[in-house]
Design a protein around this nucleic acid. Structure first.
Lengths: 211, 211
DNA sequence: ATCAATATACTGGAAAACCAGTAGAAAAAA
DNA sequence: TTTTTTCTACTGGTTTTCCAGTATATTGAT
């Protein structure tokens, strides 16, 4: 029994990846690449008129970031399955993507087999994550929330300024607030992030990809 | 006059990139992809027995880093043209690659045209850099050496410890030296890296991929 | 063997960061 | 509207970093 092939949409700004995916998928008659886009905007406007079964979505698009893309896509087509694709594995991003509703996630070193597997699983409504991705997910559970203890907007702002190497006084000038206030923010940041100096603060900020 | 096609070697650990490159290059009869490898070791042992005209070399291989690969390849086959490939543009890496002898550098969002162009230029002994890469090179000239002003081994070590958020005294204990010495190192580091506090120091260290 | 670079260590003083506690105003949430 | 959170700001005291200059032992290179 030959079923209708799964319609695939590829979204990636790298021509060589697009071609690669098409080639890898062309050998398998269960899937059929419908079309491809090299940015988020075009993808979304396409989805307004037409749809697909599964979208292979590069996380690093030139215009819209991957996490937002997931939300926007599912807003338009709630039934489409999204598989995230990225070169490197960034726990926080992957976690956010999953929260927003991706059904699968693969690194770009995935094989054709993994790819087709992921697609058919996702099309059936299941989840599929590459082996490396699974490790990351496991880690992020053990480390009980890789994501940061909610910082306020102001705190994040101050944190980025600290990370830029600005001194308390510099920051105070830039934000038109008292240096004492800046210090309070820094103190609260250190407390929230459980560190004891500005250096560690930046280390954490870098780790959590805050800056 | 139909010349002998340029023999290409692809080195990349992403199946989809390999397939993509093959597809993109298959349309052009001036080039011919000889074979491909997914790691550095296999590539080098191949080059011991056989050669190619141009190597498309992914900078982020699983076993050997791109910069070293260039040196090793040219050690075996001095006449081969190497084109670096990477997803993101990292000035320091690109600069090092060029120093070590790559003849071209492209980001993975390069088009088929750019790719073939780069290959034929490099094969003729010329240089070819993608437009984004050229911008970076221009910037790094203006910023007079994006690469770090030689740090001593000890200084690098101290820098990493600072970046880990350790205090001067911690570091002193860890290295069995006086806190005053650690401070001197830190001072010299700040001078060399042209910053004025530990926070910036870490920022720079992160930027330069020292840690 | 000698010279240069590196790693080590100190003094002393100024500046900035760090700690603890408090508290009013503004904005957001209930 | 009331409550809570966030942003703001202060006092006062401790610790650490930052700056400038100096100096010796240990490497490494020629």
């Amino acid at each position: 029994m030959q079923r209708k092939p799964i319609d695939i949409l590829i979204v990636d700004d790298h021509p060589m990846v697009i071609e690669g995916l098409k080639t890898l998928l062309s050998d398998d008659e269960r899937v059929s690449v419908k079309t491809h886009f090299i940015n988020g905007t075009d993808t979304l406007s396409y989805l307004e008129k037409d749809t697909a079964d599964v979208i292979l979505l590069d996380v690093n698009l030139p215009d819209i970031n991957g996490v937002e893309m997931v939300t926007k896509i599912l807003n338009i087509r709630a039934n489409v399955g999204i598989i995230g694709l990225s070169t490197y594995s960034e726990p926080s991003i992957i976690n956010q993507m999953i929260k927003n509703g991706v059904k699968g996630y693969l690194l770009k070193n995935a094989t054709a087999d993994e790819l087709v597997n992921a697609i058919s699983q996702v099309q059936q409504g299941n989840f599929y994550f590459g082996s490396e991705v699974q490790k990351i997910l496991a880690d992020s559970v053990t480390q009980e929330s890789t994501d940061l203890p909610k910082l306020t907007r102001r705190e994040k702002h101050v944190l980025t300024l600290i990370a830029e190497g600005k001194t308390t006084n510099n920051i105070a000038e830039e934000l038109f607030i008292s240096p004492l206030t800046v210090e309070t923010h820094r103190r609260n940041l250190m407390q929230k992030l459980e560190v004891s100096n500005a250096a560690s603060l930046i280390k954490v900020a870098v780790e959590k990809k805050l800056i």
